[in-house]
């Protein structure tokens, strides 16, 4: 694989007694789409802010191209938000909206040429038709393309996309995802896409990382992870996705716990189907699940799950049992 663009090592971010990110390690490589999957309260947003250099860290490290991430990296890292209508200033023309990033970055070259290039890359052609328009004069799908053009205008290395198609109509969803994938394939851009949509991951992501209560609990190549999930949380998530209807549903009770009260032992054990079904007791690991926190998945891991049951299984395979 190519060199890592982003390296996160054992990141911890605390807000008072709340541990929003609680030991997360992750790498993002150039030319890949990484889907970060998790529910509200899993720490995805805090992790993204840390990559932008906007989030004071309690401990750990976030490096961009080998250097500590700071807000000064805003040309390297750009953000695509969920709701394009809210992200665009209604009183500016498309030209001004897209040029803004260049002005903030004090770009000294030909501004108009850059803006035209970015709109073309985002598939807004003919470019002249869009330059003088206002956001309300174009469709929702075109607005999201403007947001992407505004992000691409500074030639970033990494796009952080927070649910980029969740607020878009179904037929437009595919077009925007195809655009993101195409930008990655043609420019070597990296995209970290935060989503709870596993179908999106199947559509465009090379790798998937699953986050639960401040930590990455499973990571792997998309096809491998979605076809053979290891962590009981990933398995449960996949079972409730309407796109995988053949699996038996495992609807977890309750909601993600309060980050001020992260359960002792494995953070997932109070909701874990392996615990609840008595499987953990049968394997003789239930006490471990309740008292020992599974090891953090190292940043350079290609395939892994933070789960005592998975660890036991792998050890069994290695020793030939």
């Amino acid at each position: 694989m190519k060199s890592p663009l982003v390296e996160i090592e054992d990141l911890r971010v605390e807000f008072g007694s709340a541990r929003a990110v609680d030991g997360a390690s992750l790498r993002v490589f150039e030319g890949e789409v990484l889907a970060l999957v998790g529910e509200s309260g899993s720490g995805k947003t805090t992790l993204i802010r840390a990559i932008q250099g906007l989030q004071p860290m309690t401990s750990g490290a976030v490096r961009l191209e080998g250097q500590t991430a700071t807000a000064r990296h805003r040309d390297t890292v750009q953000m695509v938000f969920q709701d394009p209508t809210g992200a665009l200033n209604p009183r500016r023309t498309i030209y001004e909206i897209v040029a803004e990033g260049l002005r903030i970055a004090r770009f000294a070259g030909d501004e108009e040429a850059k803006v035209r290039e970015a709109l073309g890359m985002a598939g807004l052609r003919p470019v002249e038709r869009f330059l003088p328009r206002y956001p309300h004069e174009i469709s929702g799908g075109q607005r999201q393309r403007v947001v992407i053009a505004g992000a691409m205008v500074t030639s970033p290395r990494l796009l952080l996309a927070d649910e980029p198609v969740a607020s878009l109509d179904a037929s437009i969803r595919g077009e925007i995802l195809a655009l993101l994938r195409n930008l990655v394939d043609t420019t070597g851009l990296a995209v970290l896409v935060v989503t709870h949509d596993l179908g999106l991951a199947w559509n465009i992501a090379d790798r998937v990382a699953v986050m639960y209560l401040g930590r990455i609990v499973e990571t792997g190549m998309t096809e491998e992870l979605l076809a053979h999930p290891q962590h009981p949380y990933t398995k449960a998530l996949l079972s409730v996705v309407p796109e995988t209807r053949q699996m038996e549903q495992q609807i977890l009770a309750g909601e993600i716990p309060d980050p001020r009260k992260i359960p002792k032992g494995c953070r997932f054990h109070p909701r874990c189907p392996v615990m609840r079904s008595g499987e953990a007791a049968r394997l003789g690991i239930d006490e471990r699940c309740k008292s020992d926190d599974p090891a953090i998945i190292a940043a350079d891991t290609i395939r892994g799950a933070a789960c005592h049951a998975v660890e036991l299984q792998i050890r069994g395979l290695r020793s030939g049992v």
């Binding site: 595919g174 077009e175 995802l177 596993l198 179908g199 199947w202 559509n203 979605l226 996949l238 996705v241």
Partner: peptide, 16 residues
């Protein structure tokens, strides 16, 4: 637009 996970015809091919 809603792919079936595991269906190779939609892998890396979002349809719009």
């Amino acid at each position: 637009a809603f792919p079936t996970i595991g269906d190779q015809s939609s892998r890396m091919k979002p349809a719009g």
